[in-house]
């Protein structure tokens, strides 16, 4: 999962279909060159992954993407 939100002060990621939807919350300090982060996450199944970014002026923006999860190696 990677997220990029220029001008954000913080980003929260949620996996709507997980038993606990919170994934990560990142706060960017003065030395963060870009408001971007990549990591690896667990998903319980095919679902929407939602990113909410808090912009410096206090407003929030949201983006989401559907991720298809295939269980098992063959056929899917």
């Amino acid at each position: 999962m990677s997220v990029d939100a220029p001008g954000a002060v913080a980003i929260a990621i949620f996996a709507a279909g997980n038993p606990t939807p919170d994934v990560v919350t990142a706060k960017f300090g003065p030395l963060a060159a870009s408001q971007a982060l990549s990591t690896r996450i667990r998903l319980a199944g095919t679902q929407d992954v939602v990113a909410v970014a808090q912009v410096a002026d206090g407003s929030f923006v949201k983006a989401s993407n559907t991720v298809k999860v295939t269980i098992g190696g063959c056929g899917g």
């Binding site: 990142a26 990591t39 690896r40 667990r42």
Partner: peptide, 16 residues
Amino acid sequence: QDVIDVTIEPAVSTNP
């Protein structure tokens, strides 16, 4: 000086 501060929940994979 702060660069990044990440709060991690159980949905982050093994070997973060």
